[in-house]
Design a binder for these strands. Sequence first.
DNA 1: TATTGTTATACTCTATAACTATA
DNA 2: TATAGTTATAGAGTATAACAATA
Lengths: 155, 155
Amino acid sequence: MTHHAPPEVLTSRLGYLLKHAYLRLTEESSLALAPYGIDGRELAVLVVLDAHDELSQLDVAGKLGIDRTTMVALVDALQDKELVERRRSPQDRRKNIVQLTTAGQKRLQNAESARQEMERRFLAPLSSADAARLVRSLQSLVGAPLGTDRTPGST
Amino acid sequence: MTHHAPPEVLTSRLGYLLKHAYLRLTEESSLALAPYGIDGRELAVLVVLDAHDELSQLDVAGKLGIDRTTMVALVDALQDKELVERRRSPQDRRKNIVQLTTAGQKRLQNAESARQEMERRFLAPLSSADAARLVRSLQSLVGAPLGTDRTPGST
DNA sequence: TATTGTTATACTCTATAACTATA
DNA sequence: TATAGTTATAGAGTATAACAATA
């Protein structure tokens, strides 16, 4: 993934732009999170777990838009790092409730700071107004509820 | 890849937004291009070939930001569909010059129309001003090296 | 019967290494 | 010796099918 000048004929194409913006962000994200021993998807799991209580593996998978079979390996990895724990739900013993450990909560805080800093650097070429508009436009396209105030500095 | 309501905690994250915007566009793109028997990446190859003369496989790969080994299969597929032809460069017999066939040019025109129509539909949730700003912002993000001062006016 | 987690398997996309032919 | 194309191979990432435990 080297930095070559983008070809003129493709830079007006949304597919090219979204793909390469995503690839670039993924690369920066990996670098920013490497010191914390997790990747962006694992961080997303931690964020979801932190925001809700008593989530099963399937619940988390649903929120992230990934398969339940993919979820197994993800939780395995996070459990090996002692950032989450599985426990059987007493209400429904088919379910694995996934919980943040204390170490997981700490890791989440630190990695989140690094991710936010990375995101700021990534958006630096844009004015803050354009950055905010970009986020809101992407939310519209992805189907996010509109009208979510994205005041800079909220969380 | 079903359409489920995006989780609140993730919709402010650029990584999530770019990934899912890209996935959604890719899905729409596949549908729009299916009648033409090509996918978005193959169409991009045709576009690049149409815009330049005497491009080798490596030239095209460079412009698309993909590997030369990936390029082989791509050109194979397009050649099987009789949309492009390989010919040895007389100047440098190591090189394969890739050329659009007449059928390839026609297919390019039709598929491009379909792609543009798809892109319009995809951007429909945005005002035309916001759509234009989105494209320009993405161009800035994809074109600018990270962490450096982005002095406007350098190419 | 249906659901949750799990495993095994396969498929796509991509990159790395090694080979060939040319330079 | 270096470069362009090719092939074989391997690594992510993801999805499908089948199975065990549970409902």
